[in-house]
Amino acid sequence: MTRTDRPAGVLQEAHIPVQAKLAAAWASFMFLYIYVDYLALYKPGFIDDILAGTVHEFDTGPTFVALALTLMAVPILMILLSTTLPARVARATNLVVATLYIPVSVYNAAGESWTYLSFYGLSIGLELLLLAFILRAAWTWPRIARTTAGRDLAQDRV
């Protein structure tokens, strides 16, 4: 089918670089992660617990705050790193970080009451879908063929 043979109204698919896909996925993950924490503030007693110095049975001291910042900073940095690191390094970094965030996401439901399990189940399910997308996009990162002495060779794998 040539360009003129296409039926009217058919949309052209845009080629989006894998780096942009990964950055978009990490941004989506980050926003979801933030909004889950924000919406948790609406649970009865949650703010009272914060004011008393605890979140999910953890003291809200310097260690908790540093850990919370680290858990948020990593996806934020992955947006930048996915688009600026060399392809091989970006691919490996995305594979490692997304894999490490799977248990982190699942852990967020630990100790929650059944009342809010659907809220956390939905949010964790969405986080896991985004992480699976990141893993798939990084794993299947397109390779370019290079020609050496008249033969086509696939570029070395990571």
Rank of each mutant, 00 (worst) to 15 (best):
V55K: 06
T70E: 00
T93P: 08
I47M: 10
F64M: 13
A24E: 04
A66L: 03
L81S: 00
T54C: 00
L71P: 02
T63W: 12
F64Y: 15
A27G: 13
T93C: 11
T60I: 14
D48A: 06
A87T: 11
V36Q: 07
F31C: 08
Y33D: 08
I79K: 04
T93V: 15
L71K: 09
A27Q: 07
T60G: 07
T63G: 06
F58I: 08
A52G: 01
R91S: 08
G53H: 11
I50E: 02
D37F: 10
A27S: 12
K43R: 15
I34L: 06
A87R: 11
H56E: 15
F58D: 15
K43Y: 13
P75D: 11
D49M: 07
A20E: 13
T63P: 03
A73T: 03
L67M: 09
L67R: 04
T63K: 11
P75K: 09
P44C: 01
D49L: 04
W26A: 05
P86Y: 02
A24P: 04
L81D: 00
T54F: 02
A90E: 09
D59I: 12
L85R: 01
T70D: 00
I47T: 11
A52C: 01
G53S: 10
A23D: 03
L85M: 06
I34W: 02
Y33C: 00
T60S: 08
T60P: 04
L81Q: 01
T70V: 02
M30L: 13
S82A: 09
G45V: 09
A40R: 05
A40I: 01
D37E: 13
L85C: 01
L71H: 10
T84R: 13
H56T: 12
Y38I: 12
Q19C: 02
M30T: 13
L41G: 11
T83V: 08
F29T: 05
A68Q: 10
P62G: 15
L77T: 03
A20C: 09
F58V: 11
